[in-house]
Structures are given as C-alpha cells and as structure tokens.
Amino acid sequence: MSSADEILYGRDTLRYVRLALLVVPLLLMVAIVIYGLLNGKVEDSISSYYLGPSRDLFVAMLVSTGVLLVVYKGAPLEDYALNLAGFYAIFVALVPTRLGQTLSSLTSSAQIQLIRSVQISIVAVLVVSAVFVWLEWKTKKWTPRALHTSKLSTILSLSSTVALVAFIGLLFWRSIEGTDFAGVHYAAALLLILSMGVAIASHLGREDLCEVDTSGGRPIHYAVLLILMALGIIGWFVLNALGIAQALFIVEWYEIGLFSYFWYLESRRLWEAPTPREKLGD
C-alpha cells in the first residue's frame, strides 16, 4: 500500500467518524419517538429512558458517542475538550439519574449487585482512561503546553482541568460511599455540555478559520452557538420554575441539537480539506 493510499484511507476514516457522531444519536431519538407513540408519554429527561425498554439503546448510544469523541483528533484544545466530553458521556450512560429510586425498589441482594456493578464500571473506565492518557503522553501526541497558546485557551483548559479533578473526586467519594451515587449523573451531564461548549469555543480567534468558504462554518457561527448553548442552560431553570415536567428533556435535546449542528458545519468545512502533502503540491 502506498503512502498516498494510506492518506486517503485515513481521510475516509476521519469522515466516517464524523458521520457516525451525527448518526448515532438518531438511534436513541428514533427509539424515544417509537416509545412515545406506543405509550403516549414523554419522560422528564433522556436519562429516564435508562429504566425503560430503550435502556440498551440509551447506554449504547452514549458509550459509542463517548468513544467516538475520544477517537476523533483535532486541534489541541478541541481534542482535549472532546476527550473530556467523551469521558463524561460514558458516566452519563453508566450511572442512571434515578439510581436511588431504583435501589429502593430492589431486594437487598439485588441492591448490592447493582451497586457493585456501578462501582466496577466506574473503576474500569477510570483505569482505561488513565492508560489512554499515559499512552497519549508516551507517544508525544499531547502535551499540556499545547493547550496554552492564548489567554482564552489557557482559561478554558485550566477550567476544564479543575472541573475534571473535581468530578474524579466525586467519583471516588461516591464509589467508596457506595450508596446511590447522588450527583454523579447530573455532574457528568453538565460537564458534558460544558465540554462541548469548550470544543466550540476553541475555534474562536483561530486565524485559519478567518477565511473559509461557504461550505463550512464561519467564525461568527461559533460565537452564536455558544450564546445559544448558554441560553439553553438558563432556559432549563426557567422551564423548571414554570413547572414543566419535561424541562430537562427539552434542554438536553436542544443542546445535543446545537452541538450536532456545529459538528455538521465542521464536517462540511473539513470534508474536502487538503492534507499537508496536498497543500505542498506533492
């Protein structure tokens, strides 16, 4: 196989990773629509489907999305933010929002079994994540210095790292405590949204995006998407205050939709992007 073929195959692989991140959420969306038509109701959050017939698709969609976010490689800050988003997505999938309610309906032996299952899952993900970080560092593909190319990137990367350390601390505390893992799901969901926001914010001020054609996103799109994502978080408090039971469900899909649109813009912009060799005319 020639090096030119390898470059083309690598580009195709990247394209399919991007397409998969647009298509995979459709699995859960279709399942939720079918569930709603059959049962005549909509749950109060996406994670509520964890306890229903859509559980398998819920977990599969989030875990596969998390893995794809980690696998995808971009600019240093974007890559870091997407790695964190993938990390948090897996915990949104593995630790249900109503675990305490579920445990109260089980026998003592079943409660212990479920708690042990969650504990094992948490430890397994943390160990694999630690190995991944070590391999990234060992292969020199990532260094902390690459995250501090500007004041904005420094602030975003440090904030993300502090949030990550706090979340890992929460995981250890809840795992040792071994009761209902309160706060883990909501913390992971919030940090997932914030990490997606950081990935979008990483495009602000990038000189290589100042001149792009109409097939992709323009710099102003990133700022608008960030504002809309922030309004979505505020909207959750407003809808919740109004007593709308599906407030969280609405906001979750709203945020997913915004990030999917961002991913669509980036996919179009980079679909025919030339490789470094092509830029040099080789």
Rank of each mutant, 00 (worst) to 15 (best):
D180L: 00
R116M: 15
L280Y: 08
G178F: 14
E136H: 01
K138I: 02
G178A: 15
N39L: 12
A188E: 05
K151H: 10
E6M: 12
L248Q: 11
S54P: 12
E266G: 10
L68H: 00
R55E: 13
G74Y: 02
R116K: 11
Y261R: 06
V212T: 15
I220M: 14
L126W: 01
L69I: 03
I46H: 00
T143A: 11
A223W: 08
K151E: 13
I34Q: 08
P96A: 10
A273F: 08
T139Y: 09
G86W: 01
L192T: 12
F87V: 01
S45R: 00
L82M: 15
A230P: 09
R55S: 15
V165E: 06
D79G: 02
R145N: 06
P219F: 02
D79K: 06
M61Y: 04
E207N: 02
L68G: 07
S3Y: 14
L37G: 07
Y254Q: 01
L135R: 12
H203I: 02
I7Q: 13
T13M: 09
R277W: 14
A182G: 04
L158E: 07
L265T: 04
V165L: 12
A223N: 00
A166S: 08
W137P: 06
F181H: 08
T139R: 12
G205H: 08
K41P: 00
L28A: 01
Y88K: 07
I250F: 13
R55V: 05
I193G: 14
L37V: 10
I200S: 03
T65C: 02
S3L: 15
G52T: 15
V123F: 14
S157Q: 00
V198Q: 05
A245I: 10
A75Y: 04
G40D: 12
G281E: 05
R269D: 02
T161P: 04
Y261K: 08
T65W: 01
F58T: 00
L82D: 07
V251H: 10
S117A: 12
